[in-house]
């Protein structure tokens, strides 16, 4: 991932095309890459692009799923502008991302650096930190709901023994979001750790040897060697984690259902509610389109910034 910007291999096509004569072989070698991507592209078109276009089509209709769609122009989009709950759920999503993304990255990096050293039971420790990554979202939600349960969850039981609480983890506006954030971190830290670990292992020791010769202290080594070399990894993890945060659904669906009040209603939650609880598929699709555009913009901007700063590193 040298960087996310497009660093493609040098031009090479002229050699492949001029090697053999005749229009057929030239045509064929031009065709080769398309043949390689064709199966994927076919499935993409059928199962991703077409449904997306269909959602765009639905977004200018009123549709309850069980009756016939009725064209209503940009009504869904204008309604969205004045829908306070839509903006609140978007704000919630931003808060949730701001709380989970940097924390998972920092903790993941810390763990990776620690577990990259020679330590007793290193493999076991790595496995334990990675373990939550392989737990499905359904199972995660089940475990979390069981641990955080106000009335018979173990966390409150332990707090009670310590003379604190009970805390209404999932049913007070103050604690519901933090509970969900903690659960999210449990899942994400391990993923960040593994990716950072891989990146650390591919840094050549000669960089550090050179730094030591220059008299760099440990923090300086991190500041001037490790961190800059991890930039592309950090960038990749940043993008991936933001995407995950914007897509969070199952966890909240099971743990709080978006409540109490709207304190844990995220954007996908709200879309789902509009689509299936209020039977307003058209409105839900319009929100989906807006969300898609927002994420796309975010990524493109990040991409640009990354490419620009890369040049100075």
């Amino acid at each position: 991932m040298a960087d996310l910007s497009m660093t493609y291999p040098k031009e090479r096509s002229e050699t492949t095309t001029s090697r053999k004569s005749g229009w057929w072989s030239s045509y064929r070698s031009r065709l080769t890459p398309y043949l390689f991507i064709a199966p994927n592209l076919l499935l993409f078109s059928i199962f991703v692009f077409f449904p997306l276009l269909y959602a765009a089509y639905i977004s200018v209709h009123q549709w309850s799923l069980i009756d016939a769609p009725e064209f209503n122009g940009v009504q869904n989009y204008t309604r969205l502008l004045s829908d306070g709950q839509f903006w609140q759920s978007l704000t919630n999503t931003v808060i949730y991302s701001a709380a989970t993304v940097p924390t998972s990255l920092i903790l993941g990096l810390f763990l990776a650096i620690g577990l990259n050293r020679k330590l007793a039971a290193r493999t076991l420790l790595r496995s334990i930190y990675f373990l939550p990554v392989v737990v499905s979202s359904v199972a995660t939600a089940v475990i979390a709901a069981w641990l955080f349960n106000d009335n018979y969850g173990i966390i409150n039981a332990l707090l009670k023994q310590a003379g604190v609480g009970p805390v209404a983890w999932l049913s007070s506006p103050r604690w519901a979001l933090p509970s969900i954030i903690l659960t999210t971190l449990w899942v994400r830290i391990g993923f960040c750790m593994v990716v950072y670990l891989a990146a650390l292992q591919s840094i050549s020791p000669s960089y550090y040897e050179a730094a030591v010769i220059d008299g760099a202290t440990r923090p300086q080594q991190f500041r001037f060697v490790t961190w800059p070399l991890l930039r592309p990894t950090t960038f990749l993890l940043l993008i991936l984690n933001v995407i995950y945060s914007f897509q969070v659904f199952d966890l909240i669906y099971v743990m709080t259902g978006g409540g109490p009040g709207f304190s844990t209603t995220m954007i996908v939650q709200y879309i789902y509610q509009a689509a299936f609880a209020s039977s307003e598929m058209g409105y839900a699709s319009a929100m989906g389109m807006v969300l898609f555009v927002l994420i796309l913009l975010f990524t493109l901007i990040q991409w640009r910034i990354n490419r620009r700063t890369e040049q100075f590193v």
């Binding site: 709901a145 349960n149 209404a168 999932l170 049913s171 007070s172 709080t256 409540g259 109490p260």
Partner: peptide, 10 residues
């Protein structure tokens, strides 16, 4: 119990 409001799953 606070967890028994209308949007919870208790």
């Amino acid at each position: 119990p606070p967890s028994t409001s209308v949007k919870s799953a208790e």
